[in-house]
Write a protein that binds this DNA or RNA. Structure first.
Lengths: 241, 241, 241, 241
DNA sequence: GATGAATGAGTATTCATTCAT
DNA sequence: GATGAATGAATACTCATTCAT
């Protein structure tokens, strides 16, 4: 699903690459000496990174393009060479970061081999890892704070992040029920609830100043507590059962 | 089991009084020309109500005092008679609404009599009811979206809402463990996780446009699913236990 | 025809009135002492006057709202209290001045009594008088320079100024032909041509720096030359006739 | 009587060369791979042509160098290789086009042989032909609209176009008076007025959308009406004379 | 107390101009 | 010569805040 506008080029593929080393060989097949040229295409990356920072620090409305430009090390006008405006810049920030987030989820899904318990553990660990990432902290605040002003982005986020993660977890739970590892709960419902648990706790971990209820425990402890709780719920035998 | 049933309905009307009906008759019924005058004492309330609406619709930065004034039925200048400025107005909105929210929690806590299961059920029901309230929807968005710009308010919120609610639930869980109703989980941890579950789902229910994972179920079904899940987790006997 | 947008109030009627003396009596019929109140409605007039000056000096695109505000003695923001933006301000300037111009034409038309020659003389004199007015100089430049960017205004101008003036003159010419004062020319064509003659010469008189061909003659001489030429053409008897 | 008939048609193509066809063959026709290269010598011409278009479409202030560059098929930077800046580019556009216009006038003046009536007819026809040219339409708008911001250009235009044309016509009129073809009018005054008539009507013909008074007649009819009127005026015998 | 006209600081956006390649 | 990425000065427009009435 293409949420962004008409301006995007092909920096998509460079997302994970360190911007300071993005070079490209000018392919002259017959040339003896391949020459490296500095890619102006790193500009968008610099701007997007700076924009994510500023947006998440101050919110979209309060973010000043001037700040973003300064932090990206470019002039204000340069932003407009790559993005149609503030709003479009924000769209790109979200879109790009969400895409990156999906990659992570994809990686996590590779751990589907083995027992359902092991698979779920692996997914939970890697997901929580991601949730505690500074990037995710920023995006999550933005999603909660501003996305309702951008319905198309919100839909994109819901479809590609929440639903996707939930489906991944639901699959594992279903497998676990089949294999007898888990009680016969509703896999979809359980997956939704687990997703929610991880989301809030990710948020709380990322703004510990405002989370007195996490006082005294490390992020890893919190994660382990969540996992324990999750497995308890999934393996539960109701008293009267 | 449904203890808090009779009183939740008036939360909204208690918190957001309809500005269009706050009038007072200045002459007796038998007067030929009854004249209505707006109650000056209600000014701050009207403004706060309008402000909550506008803030939650557009965010603090995008909210225009003009809109708030118009919606409150007063002039822009009047706002400054009661509040020092936009930011202070926002502070008051949050403070007042949080205080109102606390009252509710207090009320709910009265249902501590009876079995832990019944008490927890009652609290969960009444709390979820509140979470689905338009007022809460607004506040919750504001809390997630903007509170980090107001550290003092964030602390106030964390202390008085999250911690307090968590303590309430933890108490009930502890009681349930003692009475043998629940497995010997950590009451504080469980309370925190349950709190989180309810918060996210409250949020999701309040912005269903962006919550495809709730498609096909009513808010009440969602609540019941949460409760089932919660009790499963709390009553769990680990397989190997 | 209403060309302007939604903002206009009722300052229309005050057009010719000197802005510095626009006061209004607050009509309290029973009050013993009528009190005068400064009309905020003079603001639009001040702004429109300043805008006409600046627009005609620098053109619409080069005109700075700042300059207009300063010259009107108000702040920049004040302009936006009365006009939706720069373009709308320009529309109002043209509309208002054109309306004023029509009043003049109306006045001139009163001289329709008497001989056609006398009537035409009177109209020509009063029209040329108007053409040499500083206000008209400004408007005429704006019309020629920028109106093509505002098709609705251009149509308004063509209908209400050019066509109207032409019709007035054509009527007099027709009368003169009937009475035998003029040769049997086509009244409409002649009126159009005379209109054109006066328009260019008005323009030339108003920018004499660029009109070396007017060197050595006063505006009144120019006018008389035009009139002589016009009457020559209208009274002409073709040689071979 | 139609003297200048054969040559007016090429004015436009001489002045605005179509940029898309300025190429040169770099190899001989018998070469297997004929390759076309753009003539660098044509750069300035291409830019000037594009600039005239854009300037006349949007006005100097609103014209974007970007558009001019794109239309000229060059990069924005290239413009600065040939012109000092936007203003200087405009100056060159006017100078070059005016010069071209003068050549035309020169050509037209060759038709001074024969009767004054024939000569004047020829000049009028060829001049009006030129006035209706797209190029002239553009220049005329620019002259009226923006030249007052460039006093030196305005003087250049007045001296070389208006005065020169006027002198040409005045000469013919004087000849006609001498020969008895015309009444003893003032040749200079008449020439000025005739010039004015043709200028306005040229303008009106070029923006017929805004000229309801020309509705129903072709440009040629308009021209013939002007000529009839002019000859009427010139051959006039005042009633009382 | 209320009003709403007026203010002006703050910012997104545009575009002529420069310059490294 | 050409390019087009980069710049930053310039400016329309917004809106919180003030204050005379």
């Amino acid at each position: 699903m293409d949420v962004g506008g008409g301006l995007q080029r092909d920096w998509d593929t460079a997302i994970i690459t360190d911007p300071s080393v993005i070079y490209i060989m000018t392919s002259l097949p017959d040339s003896l000496e391949p020459r490296w040229r500095r890619l102006p295409e790193e500009r968008p990356r610099q701007i997007l990174d700076a924009a994510l920072e500023v947006f998440s620090e101050r919110g979209v409305a309060d973010a000043r393009l001037d700040d973003i430009a300064r932090r990206a090390g470019v002039s204000k006008g340069t932003i407009y060479l790559y993005f149609a405006g503030k709003e479009e810049l924000f769209r790109e920030v979200v879109r790009k970061t969400i895409v990156a987030r999906i990659e992570i989820a994809e990686l996590a899904s590779h751990s589907e081999s083995g027992s359902a318990v092991d698979a779920l553990s692996a997914v939970m660990r890697s997901w929580f890892e991601f949730l505690r990432t500074p990037t995710y902290a920023s995006v999550h605040r933005l999603v909660n704070a501003e996305l309702y002003k951008f319905p198309d982005l919100a839909a994109f986020y819901a479809d590609n992040v929440v639903m996707r993660g939930q489906r991944l977890i639901a699959g594992i739970i279903a497998r676990g029920i089949e294999s007898g590892e888990f009680a016969p709960v509703d896999p979809v419902i359980s997956a939704r609830i687990l997703t929610g648990i991880f989301l809030v706790h990710g948020l709380w971990c990322n703004q510990r100043q405002f989370s007195p209820h996490l006082a005294g425990r490390t992020d890893d402890q919190v994660r382990d507590e969540l996992m324990t709780f999750a497995f308890n719920a999934l393996r539960a035998r109701a008293r009267d059962a």
